[in-house]
Simulated scan of single mutants.
Amino acid sequence: MSLIHPTAIIDPAAQLDSSVKVGAYTVIGPHVRIGAGSTIGPHCVIDGRTTIGQDNRIAQFNSIGGAPQDMKYAGEPTELVIGDRNAVHEFCTFNLGTVQDEGVTRIGNDNWIMAYVHIAHDVRMGSHAVLANNATLAGHVHVGDWAVVGGLTGVHQFVKIGAHAMIGFQAHVAQDVPPFITVDGNPLSARAVNVVGLRRREYSAERIGVIKQMHKLLYRSSMTLEQAVAAIGDLRTQQGGNADSDIEVMLSFLAAATRGIVR
């Protein structure tokens, strides 16, 4: 209890590991569970059926587990699930899910979430992603592992952002962003392969070369999307190992895209 500031208000039914630190004037509701090693800063409100994993760092002035900003929400027992080792900076808002989807807003592990970020109902966010200041994810958005969303960027509901994609500053994202691709501008345009990010993750020159081939087929050829998908599939007979797994990541994403991809 010495780790919990005396001004914090924690419902007796909340489940906090004994190692959790809670700052001054924070309010934690009855259905909240927080894992070992996590730190909650002062002046936070954590409510709803919210599960927070281990070793998270949640800074001051955050609203976590609030009701969805969806007029259809009628108080159903939906959830917010946050993984491990996430850094959440100031003034962020994370909402519960809705029964119109799976009923869960889900955030993975090792994400870096900067100030004033909004994560709406039913978002599915992977791991190792970065959301810069004032990034806004509308309902039902999916964000892949290692994706980067630039500051002041708005992402339309139901959009999917692929693994290792990078979205530039102040973008309006209304279509799906394929894996490995860098996009920016308004209207949004695909620019290139996220080579810098891939090199930082120790992708080999051979793997990056295959990803560049996929980019060329999607964006630098005269093919339709259907033709480009077929040509990307044909690359599997020419490659192997990790390159094949990168091809599968791209093909799986394109097969699941529902809003059309950024072109």
Rank of each mutant, 00 (worst) to 15 (best):
H5A: 15
P6L: 04
T7D: 07
I9R: 13
P12I: 00
A13R: 13
A14F: 10
Q15N: 12
Q15R: 13
L16S: 04
L16Y: 06
D17H: 15
D17V: 00
S18Y: 03
V20I: 06
V20E: 05
K21Y: 08
K21E: 15
V22A: 10
I28L: 08
G29H: 07
H31A: 05
H31T: 02
H31Q: 13
I34L: 03
G35L: 09
A36I: 01
S38T: 15
P42I: 01
D47W: 07
N56K: 09
I58Q: 04
G65K: 06
G65P: 10
G66K: 08
P68D: 05
P68Y: 02
Q69H: 12
T78V: 14
G83E: 02
G83R: 03
G83A: 01
D84A: 06
R85A: 04
R85I: 00
N86W: 05
A87D: 11
V88C: 07
E90S: 09
C92I: 01
F94G: 01
G97T: 01
V99D: 12
V99K: 15
D101H: 01
E102D: 13
E102A: 14
E102K: 13
V104G: 02
R106F: 00
R106D: 00
N109M: 06
I113R: 04
V117C: 14
V117G: 09
H118F: 11
A120D: 08
H121E: 09
V123L: 08
R124P: 00
M125R: 00
G126L: 02
S127P: 04
S127Q: 06
V130A: 13
L131H: 00
A132N: 03
A132S: 12
N133Y: 12
N133P: 12
L137K: 01
V141I: 12
V143D: 00
V149F: 01
G151S: 04
G151T: 00
L152F: 06
G154F: 07
G154T: 01
V155F: 10
Q157L: 03
F158D: 09
H164D: 10
A165L: 09
I167S: 12
G168E: 11
A171C: 15
V173H: 07
P179K: 09
F180Q: 10
I181D: 05
I181S: 08
T182Y: 10
T182F: 09
D184C: 02
G185K: 05
G185R: 04
S189Q: 14
R191E: 04
A192P: 00
N194Q: 05
N194C: 01
V195R: 11
G197E: 05
L198P: 05
L198Q: 05
S204C: 06
E206H: 14
R207H: 02
R207S: 12
I208M: 06
K212S: 05
Q213A: 10
M214T: 12
H215Y: 15
L218I: 10
Y219V: 03
S221A: 07
S222K: 15
Q227N: 04
A228V: 08
A228N: 09
V229T: 12
A230C: 03
I232T: 08
D234S: 11
G241P: 03
A243E: 14
D246S: 14
D246I: 00
L251N: 02
L251P: 00
F253K: 09
F253T: 07
A255Q: 14
T258E: 15
R259I: 04
G260E: 04
G260T: 04
I261L: 14
R263K: 13
